[in-house]
Each structure stands twice: as structure tokens, then as C-alpha cells.
Amino acid sequence: MTQTDKAAALRALHERGQPFVIANGWDAASARMLEAAGFQALATSSAAAAEVVGKRDGQLTRDEKMAHLRMLVGVTGLPISADLGNGFGASPEDCAETIRQAAEAGAVGGSIEDSTGEADGPALYDFERSVARVAAAVEAARQLPFRFTVTARAENFFQGVPDLDDTIRRLQAYERAGADVLFAPLLPDLDAVRRVCASVSKPVNFMNGVPGKSHSVAVLGEAGVRRISVATSLFRHAMKAARQAADEILAQGTFGYIDRG
């Protein structure tokens, strides 16, 4: 598919009447495996992308993130939405440039979050700056030759600011700024999910991957969710299985994991 075709396919998934799962790949092998499994779109995970090269979430540079994205685009024909963190800079112009670079790398969608990434100081950008950053990302996306899907993330709960009213206020403002998809990671319960979904008209993404706070496709669909991502959960599950096999070898001298498949 051309990039235009991929962009249209991603948008169509959001517009159908039932939720879909966008699987988070972390390397070439996982991207190919997820495509073969039958997923219709992929997302990147900033944390998984960092861990596979020995770094922590937030430590990849923009150049490193784009190189990772190009690698994934090069091995799968599926549309890819990129986890672009906070846009690699505080200014609206930084967010716009990150969207342009992601599109050049082959993505047809991407997310911008409102967390500052600062160890000292406020966890979130103030309301006005946050909205301006999303608006700039949307404007950059609209100048592309295809319809890039912009996801705007309100990071309140993820950043230890558990204010649902402010989360909804931000998401509503991001919708008015033109965001195509809205996302508030780590919402505390299904009641909060329902409130968020009822408060906006654009598709809402829910992040599964946290024990005790993950739900089935059917349950999330009933709550109003249109897209479900899985964060680092597939990556961590794969690494856990490999670690269990390694422990068996070292502790027992056996290779039963091979026969177990």
C-alpha cells in the first residue's frame, strides 16, 4: 500500500462501529509477527523502543526514534501510528517538526502528549501551551499530502496528577484543536473511561497493559472506546517467556521450553 492508502486504512479502522486493537511492535521481528497474526495496524511504544537498545523510556533522541520508525515501516505493509512522546521539545514548533519527520519516516499517525518530561518542575505543560502544541501538530499534519491521524494524549493520571475533570477539559480542548484521536492513559476505572468517552466526540484510545486496569475488547467497546493499544505488554510478555526459558536452562539443565513451543 502507498502511504496515502495506509493513512486511509488507519482512519477507516477508527470510523467503523466497533473497537479495534492496534498492536505495539518493538522491532522488525515483532512487527512481522503481529502482521502475520492478523492485526490491521501497528503502533510503536516509546518504552519498548528504548528498552530494546538498552535505554529507558524518554531517553531516545528524535533521530533515534525516527530510525526505529523507519525500520518498522520497512518490514511491514501495515499502517503505523508512532508514539512520539511529548514531541521532543516544549514549543508548538517542536511538535510540528516531529509530526513532519514521523510522516517522512513512513508513519501515517502519531501521538503527542502533554507531559513535560522534566524531573524537576511541573509534570504537565500548562493548559494553554498544551493546546497550542496539539494545534501545531494538527496544522503540520494537515499540510501533508495524506491525512495523518493525530492522537492527543492527556497525561494527568500517567504523571501522578489524578484529576479527571482536568483530563476531560484537556481532551475536549485537544478535540477542538483538531486532534483525530484522544487518549488519557491509566484512567483509574471503567466509570472514568465512560466519562471520558461521553465527554468527547472523537475516537478514544484506551491503553491495556496494566494488571487490574485492563479490560476486554467487548467491555471497552461498551464503554465507548474505539481503539485499544497494549503499550509494552506484548514486549514484556515475550521477554518474560524468554527469561523463564533461560531460568530453566540454568537451574535445571533442561530445555523443556523447546518442546512446549
Rank of each mutant, 00 (worst) to 15 (best):
E104H: 14
E113I: 08
T149H: 04
A103P: 02
D166I: 09
D114N: 07
A136C: 10
A136F: 11
I168Q: 00
R170F: 01
R170K: 02
I99Q: 00
Y125K: 01
R169M: 08
V134G: 01
C95L: 15
A132D: 09
A105V: 03
S91P: 07
A137I: 10
A123W: 02
D166F: 06
E113R: 03
C95M: 13
I168H: 00
G110S: 12
T149E: 03
A123V: 13
R169F: 01
Q143V: 14
A141W: 09
E139G: 12
V131I: 12
G121S: 00
T151E: 09
R129V: 13
S111V: 13
A105M: 05
A107K: 04
E155W: 01
R142S: 09
N156G: 07
V138F: 08
V138H: 06
V134T: 07
D126S: 08
E128G: 07
P122G: 04
A96W: 03
T167Q: 02
F127D: 07
V108S: 06
E97T: 13
R142I: 12
G89W: 01
A102I: 11
A152S: 04
A132P: 08
D166N: 10
E118L: 15
E93R: 09
Q101M: 15
F88M: 07
D166T: 12
A154M: 05
E128N: 10
V150D: 05
D114A: 04
F127N: 07
G160V: 09
E139S: 15
R147K: 14
R147P: 12
V134R: 04
V134N: 03
A107Q: 02
F157S: 02
I112P: 03
T167D: 01
G106V: 12
A154W: 00
F88Q: 05
G87K: 02
A136T: 12
D94L: 14
G110R: 06
F146M: 07
A141N: 02
Q101F: 15
P162N: 05
P122M: 11
S115H: 15
Q101A: 14
D165H: 12
R129L: 14
A119H: 13
G89M: 06
V131M: 05
A154T: 00
P162R: 04
A154I: 02
D94Q: 08
A96L: 10
A154C: 05
A102E: 04
L124T: 07
A103E: 02
A96M: 07
D126N: 12
G117R: 04
S91R: 12
A140N: 11
D126G: 12
P145K: 13
A123P: 08
D165C: 13
D114T: 01
Q143N: 15
F127R: 06
D165R: 14
N156K: 08
R170C: 00
E139H: 14
P92W: 05
E97R: 10
A119V: 15
S111E: 10
E118C: 13
D163G: 08
G121D: 04
R142T: 10
A154N: 02
P162F: 08
I112F: 09
D94E: 13
T167L: 00
P145M: 10
F88A: 11
G109F: 03
V138Q: 10
D166C: 07
V150T: 09
G121R: 01
Q159W: 08
D165G: 14
